[in-house]
Nucleic acid binder design. Structure first.
Lengths: 340, 340
DNA sequence: ATGAAAGCGCTAACAT
DNA sequence: ATGTTAGCGCTTTCAT
């Protein structure tokens, strides 16, 4: 079946291509009778306007690129869903780039903006630097960011306060009587890792507790590294009583290590993660974690981003700091007896 | 910054646009010196070829649409990752459509093929009917399917044998001494549900056990429905000793219900899921499940699909039935004492 | 209200 | 080996 084009429709309806185009788009300056004729011809010819031609002519694609580290994780999947649903509602499409934290792949993906395959890119990946994103923007491309704040007048962002989030987790653990609290970080170069570690440090300082380097280990945001990091920690710190993992996947790794080592959770060790992964309510024990409105962040940001791209004198608010919420569940809901 | 176009480069390099185009593409019939000149001009002008123009001219977009039910599930996320990585390696892009099983959204997404935004669509969603997909193909669009077999000469597919898979799970449970085995299905209209239920039935028949309708409940492939379905089952069948859930998410819901009801797993109740979700190794008890090579299926299929789209007399194999593998873990690794 | 025609930026057939 | 030119299918300005 060969696609029909606008000129075929025009011929069929005995009008000019301009008229068909008008019917296809605004259709304001078309008489009802002509409009009806054209619509009928479109229907009859089974006509669908060619997107490439439209894109070329309009210099827009109504497509947004989305860069994520790993779509196979609750955090990113929820954000992507939010973006995708809102984008679709606004007649936009999204092209996904799953980078596995390979900076090279992220950089390569930017070429889709340069060759105008996408109208703009949303970075949900924590690895690329703010500087790279700002530079990208300076070169005339549209960018938006989820998960952190980029100081740039043209870059919309939505994020939670990781430092505050980490402090709240720590405060909860401190209130439960814990004093030797370990921290399992994510990738060393992920911004979330930095910020959550910073919150960990500030909480220690507030509580006038010393920072013990042995109580910190790097993971990679995955279960296996959480498991291994915990084993290293436990080896070095037999007296620790709590673990704060920078995300839920790593906390699950800690759970597994604890079962193998016969460490009761939360009786002997409290565990807290971050992200409110959908499984955390279904583990045993249920996992204390921090809920972030991921889906909503994605939806909100893409909406503002699209607004901005279509409106040169966009003056609306661009920076969204959303609240996260500590969910205390079984894995940390146990008060240490300080007298013991 | 205004984009430079091919004619700007031509002017800069003092050659014709055709020569620039040749350098950009095959570059066979270009002398080394001209080529160098052009390359230098491209570099100097910071030129990137416009994708829309190229797409319009070549009538191809090197973009594939991917329809999934829910990217926020291990099964789909792994498949999508496989598709995305292989597609990128072949210089293709993917546009995702997360349908939440809304058939309407799937149908709408097909318009991207009609208006030539994508070169073809891979359906990973279990809801759309084989007939709809075949019809789509008959209208001249390229389609491929993951997760089941569509009888059509032009539709590549990769899938596992759901009936066999379900029989193997049942055989395992039967061997462990179970006789009253419940089945929690997924969406009533998902093909995976049908087929796994069929396997469940055939296994019962093979074992000369009666089919008891009260032992089957529908879920929706999510944790919450798994939880609720199990509660209904338990109410009706206090004597059941095993549950086969059509996917892991629902099995996690069963775990939660068991903890609340004080049912020891696997001591009193065996539980088996499907998908080998990444968390199943980290739950307590670890969950018996069925591993399918999701990532590999996605990668393999998209590779063949791209081959086929670019080669009219493609004669390569189109149907890939891949093996799944039962993973017996703690949740079902307990032999009932038949004498009790 | 409708039509004619000029491009959007690129590729490829044809000419030299 | 290199250049000229006709479109790909659409939108939009400018006429009428």
């Amino acid at each position: 079946m060969k696609d029909s084009k606008i000129i075929d429709v025009a011929r069929e309806a005995q009008v000019s291509v301009a008229t068909v185009s008008r019917v296809l788009n605004d259709s304001r300056h078309v008489s009802p009778s002509t409009k009806a004729k054209v619509l009928k011809a479109i229907e009859y010819m089974n006509f669908t306007p060619n997107a490439s031609a439209k894109n070329l002519r309009s210099q827009k694609t109504r497509t947004i690129g989305v860069v994520v580290s790993d779509i196979h994780s609750s955090y990113f999947a929820e954000i992507v869903k939010g973006i995708e649903n809102m984008a679709n509602a606004l007649k936009y499409k999204i092209i996904i780039c799953d980078t596995q934290n390979e900076k090279e792949k992220e950089l390569e993906f930017m070429s889709l903006a340069m060759n105008r395959t996408v109208d703009g890119i949303i970075f949900v990946s924590p690895v690329i630097s703010n500087r790279d994103i700002a530079a990208f923007c300076e070169r005339g491309y549209s960018a938006a960011v989820i998960g952190r704040h980029v100081e740039h007048p043209d870059i919309p962002c939505a994020y939670t306060d990781n430092v505050k989030l980490a402090r709240e987790v720590m405060q909860h653990l401190l209130e439960m009587g814990h004093r030797r609290i370990a921290f399992i970080s994510g990738y060393a170069d992920a911004i979330d890792s930095y910020e959550r570690l910073e919150g960990y440090l500030k909480a220690l300082r507030d509580a006038e507790l010393p920072f013990v380097p042995d109580l910190v280990e790097n993971g990679d945001f995955n279960e296996t590294e959480g498991y291994l990091a915990f084993k290293r920690l436990w080896e070095k710190n037999p007296d620790m009583t709590a673990v704060f993992a920078a995300n839920d996947e790593m906390a699950l790794g800690v759970f597994k290590a604890c079962r193998e080592l016969g460490i009761p959770v939360p009786g002997r060790l409290a565990v807290v993660g971050v992200d409110n992964n959908r499984v955390t309510k279904y583990t045993s024990p249920t996992l204390s974690t921090v809920d972030q409105p991921n889906y909503a962040m994605g939806a909100l940001l893409v909406e503002k981003f699209i607004d901005q791209m279509n409106d040169n004198d966009f003056i609306d608010k661009r920076v969204f700091k959303v609240d996260s919420k500590l969910k205390i569940r079984e894995s940390s809901d146990f008060r240490l007896n300080r007298e013991t």
